[in-house]
């Protein structure tokens, strides 16, 4: 194992601690999906994305990321803090009055690292595609990433965007679907089945790639780098299906929709933190 990959694991463990502590701190928020997507976002920000130092809204000549499933905001905030966009001490203000760390991500409070508000589901794919078009028009070779919940794909706007991206050959864009099979009311297959998602995106004209191990940060990083170098610029938007486990890393939160939007109590926090190494130091 390289030192770098070891670092990725340390970061992921720290981010998970942050998520659980942030949600506990305000007794609200969405730990399940945040924990499940931690490995993806850590791999993306710390291994895959080409980022400039500092932050400006236009993000020219650097890769962009858009979080469409905005309820996983504690994950994004923790990753942004550890990536250097703001001081990790600010994570303690999550969902509290006068905070820049709103319940769902927003540009409104001018938090560095955020380029679009999200929370009302189904809007992020359109936004990411728009940003990708502007990159092409600006002859900017950097690319655009986005993350979406699987349940979120029940929103029709996604399929408008999917059709559009293929028609306009948006091939500087990678959309990743958090394929955890859970949504607030229960398993996706029981609430509103997505059917064969792989075939659906392919039928819409996308290049669909599956990453087998959605909670293995090293594996994801290697796969993302491969996808980035082999699948872009070929006339098709790229969709990654990423099977994850909701609540991954905390045994009693794993694999169930029950921790989609519930905060742990004091005992549960203690039990969760006992399972997560303090990789970089708590905020």
């Amino acid at each position: 194992m390289s030192k770098e990959n070891n670092d990725l694991k340390k970061i992921a463990s720290q981010v998970r601690r942050d998520i659980v502590r942030m949600v506990h701190g305000c007794q609200s928020g969405h730990p399940g999906g945040s924990l499940g997507c931690t490995d993806f976002l850590v791999a993306l920000y710390f291994k895959v994305m080409h980022r400039k130092p500092g932050f400006d809204m236009d993000g020219k000549n650097e890769d962009l990321f858009f979080l469409s499933n905005g309820h996983t905001s504690p994950l994004l905030y923790s990753v942004l803090a550890h990536a250097g966009y703001f001081d990790k001490a600010e994570l303690a203000s999550f969902r509290k009055l006068n905070s820049r760390l709103q319940g769902h991500p927003t540009t409104h409070e001018h938090l560095p690292g955020i380029r679009m508000s999200s929370g009302s589901l189904g809007q992020g794919m359109s936004v990411a595609i728009g940003a990708a078009i502007t990159k092409k028009r600006n002859n900017d070779p950097s690319i655009v990433f986005s993350l979406h919940g699987d349940g979120e794909l029940q929103e029709g706007q996604n399929w408008e965007a999917a059709m559009f991206a293929a028609h306009h050959k948006i091939d500087n864009y990678i959309a990743t679907i958090d394929y955890n099979g859970q949504q607030i009311d229960g398993p996706v297959d029981q609430i509103m089945s997505l059917g064969n998602l792989h075939a659906k995106f392919e039928a819409f004209g996308w290049d669909v790639v599956e990453i087998e191990k959605g909670n293995d940060v090293e594996f994801i990083a290697a796969e993302l780098l491969k996808i980035r170098s082999e699948h872009l610029g070929k006339g098709k938007p790229v969709c990654i299906l990423l099977p994850t486990q909701m609540g991954y890393g905390v045994d009693f939160m794993m694999g169930s929709h029950k921790w989609h939007g519930v905060a742990p109590n004091d005992d549960q926090l203690k039990a969760a933190l006992a399972q997560l190494e303090e990789g970089l130091g708590d905020y």
């Binding site: 359109s126 936004v127 728009g130 940003a131 078009i133 600006n138 059709m163 559009f164």
Partner: peptide, 28 residues
């Protein structure tokens, strides 16, 4: 012609794409 985008009958997507286009300096 290179500064126009046909969206089809999909207004929700049009609004989102336009919002995204502003990132990088366009005025849609």
């Amino acid at each position: 012609p290179d500064r126009f985008t046909q969206v089809g009958i999909a207004e929700a997507n049009m609004i989102g794409v336009a919002a995204g286009m502003t990132i990088g300096g366009k005025i849609p």
